[in-house]
Write a protein that binds this DNA or RNA. Structure first.
Lengths: 229, 229
DNA sequence: ACAAGTGCTATGGCATACCATATGCCAATG
DNA sequence: CATTGGCATATGGTATGCCATAGCACTTGT
């Protein structure tokens, strides 16, 4: 009853989700942890081997793989095998475009409802890096997190969820293209403008800046980045 | 017109791809065919019953259901049942917002790459309905297809795929809100402006018009539409 | 030496049996 | 009559084994 509330701290028991969910998350994390665009990446998975290594049976594992398949992270081919999917250039460009659409809308929403907490986070992900030369390594990470923060600040869980499934690929691209000092510097400048727009509550501007920022990335990838496969 | 189906219409699984895929499509079609926002709709599914009715075992059926679960169309609850999900108002609004983001981006792309075929289709979905009073019934359908045509004209398969999974719910809302003659008239006027913008290659304008059009829907739903559950 | 045929093997698809637990009914209890 | 504890049952979760087929190695005939 009520009395228990103060005397007993009921922990979310076991915290054990279904095996399927755990397998899904473990696989996703494992794939995210490897650079799937590395030339030497092992792109083949094996049901039976994985089930043995996870210590679960094939059924929940297959359900997890089916989910990853639908997300496009993996391709299950009957009687051939399971392969980690490497997106081709056109697909990557489409992803960046969709991302631009969603993140720019999130920026619009963020500008309309920004909270001090969100704003603080955005500043923390831009202000400390003004001296790009000295923080190039860390900035790659802050760059990614900045875009996630924008999306989160939009307060639309659906947009967060959709972008999550694009995240792994877009992250790989961002990491790959940010290493040039000049691009990092321009990127940071864009970010600062975006924060300012959100801070001032200018939804239209915030939206446009985010869209243009991401479409710039798209154009850069289209022109300069080559893909295997 | 749509029959107000409140129970699942199970069509026999044909003979094309994997059982999982066929079950997925059959289930999705069955759910789409019923009006899930009807008060009397049967929202509960049963694995064993469905597997018997489809004539397949539970394994591929479960994989299909897992996919629908991830798409948010159904919710699988351990030892409780499988339920067709009825979105609440906040979720519907989020969907419309995400839709606005994606369709407006598609409109931008469409304006940049419009083909005579796409343009013809867009005209066919707007021009014949100028006399809204006499075509109110049909327009509801043309309205939906117009938005799909915009997205298709954008030529980004990923955006098409994402919006597909939102389609069922957004369609239900559009159908529900378009029945008022006044709204239909305004909607058609918007559509014509959009087509003109795309036709003239004005990407910025097309994007803005589509976004505003859909955000108008969002505002209308927020203010005037009430939801069960 | 080479090409076509043939059986083996790996691998995912599917079916079946069993497991664990949320729910509700019902009887025992006071 | 209200409460409670347990048991039956329904339902999704998981394990396991068989099956069909794509690829490959090996054989065999020319």
């Amino acid at each position: 009853m009520d009395m228990q509330k103060t005397s007993l701290k009921i922990v979310p028991i076991g915290e054990s989700q279904s095996l399927k969910t755990r397998a899904y998350e473990a696989l996703k994390a494992a794939i995210a942890a490897m650079n799937i665009y590395d030339e030497n990446a092992e792109l083949r998975l094996d049901e039976r081997d994985l089930s043995a290594r996870f210590g679960i049976s094939r059924t929940p594992l297959r359900e997890a793989l089916a989910q990853l398949d639908q997300e496009g992270l993996v391709k299950v081919v009957a009687r051939r095998g399971i392969f980690i999917v490497r997106k081709n250039k056109a697909e990557i460009l489409d992803m960046i475009t969709a991302w631009a659409a969603l993140e720019s809308m999130a920026a619009r929403l963020a500008a309309e409802r920004i909270t001090p907490e969100n704003l603080k986070e955005l500043h923390q992900l831009t202000d400390p890096y003004s001296d790009v030369d000295r923080h190039l390594g860390e900035y790659s990470d802050a760059n990614i997190r900045f875009h996630q923060a924008i999306i989160r600040a939009g307060g639309n869980p659906l947009i967060e969820q959709i972008t999550d499934s694009l995240f792994m690929h877009v992250r790989a691209i961002r990491n790959r293209t940010i290493v040039e000092k000049d691009r990092a510097k321009k990127s940071l400048a864009d970010h600062k403008h975006i924060v300012a727009a959100i801070e001032s509550g200018d939804a239209e501007l915030a939206e446009r800046l985010v869209r243009e920022h991401t479409l710039k990335l798209r154009a850069h990838v289209e022109e300069h980045v080559n893909f295997p496969s």
